[in-house]
Computed example of a mutant assay.
Amino acid sequence: MYTPADRYTHLLRGLETIRTLAERADRTAIARLLSQPVAADHLDEPTLDFLRQAQDLLITTTRTLAVALEPTGRPSAIDAAEAWRRAHLYLPRRGDELVLIHLDEFEDAYQAIPVLVDIPEPPPVPTLETATTLVIDKATGTVTRWPLLPLDVLTRQYRRYKLDAPMSFDE
């Protein structure tokens, strides 16, 4: 007979397996498959819509359940490698090409900046793909999109954001 601790461990492992599979799935391949005429011929629009959103739904649901099941009620802190992996999930791709990510760490979080490099002949200096950046919170792993700001300004603004304090750029 399984003990409550065994069931808890089994449940967490199952959630981690589902989340890992969902995170490893190729968004571009899923979108390409669902855009095929055969998909539209055999599936109704609500089903196609669900399949388009299933990856994000699974990731969010498994993360939420894992947090809710944590004894502290909070997820464990993440490191730079995990922040990079999460940024990779949220940043857009250029077709089948992966996007390079520059990661900066500050006290409360990580800033992820997409860097566009032409392949196979990279330019001497990478250029920014967009004028936005991602911030991945160290304590919760929450990913938020921000305008590209100097790191010291972003650090101040992010701290205010976490405190629900008004943000001002007049300093």
Rank of each mutant, 00 (worst) to 15 (best):
V135A: 01
E70S: 15
T62A: 10
Y90M: 14
V67T: 15
G95K: 05
A81R: 14
L15P: 03
G14I: 00
Y161N: 00
W84G: 09
A29V: 04
L89W: 09
R13T: 14
H102W: 09
E129G: 15
L15N: 07
L91P: 03
D56P: 00
S168I: 05
T62W: 05
A131E: 11
T28I: 10
L51Q: 12
A165L: 10
L65G: 03
T72M: 07
D170R: 00
L128P: 00
T20Y: 12
V143T: 11
G95W: 12
R74I: 07
T72K: 08
P123F: 06
R63Q: 13
R86D: 07
V117D: 02
A165D: 13
E121A: 14
A54V: 12
W84L: 14
H88E: 15
E16L: 11
A39H: 08
L12I: 14
T61M: 14
L57D: 14
P120N: 07
Y8G: 06
V38W: 11
P147T: 04
L11C: 14
V143L: 03
R85E: 14
S168C: 09
R159H: 15
L148C: 00
V125H: 09
Q36S: 11
A131P: 00
D164F: 01
L69P: 02
P122R: 05
L148W: 01
Q111F: 03
A77S: 12
H10K: 07
L103H: 01
L128R: 15
P4H: 09
Q157H: 09
A54M: 13
E97V: 08
G73V: 07
V117L: 13
V143I: 04
R159W: 01
H88A: 15
L43I: 03
P150H: 06
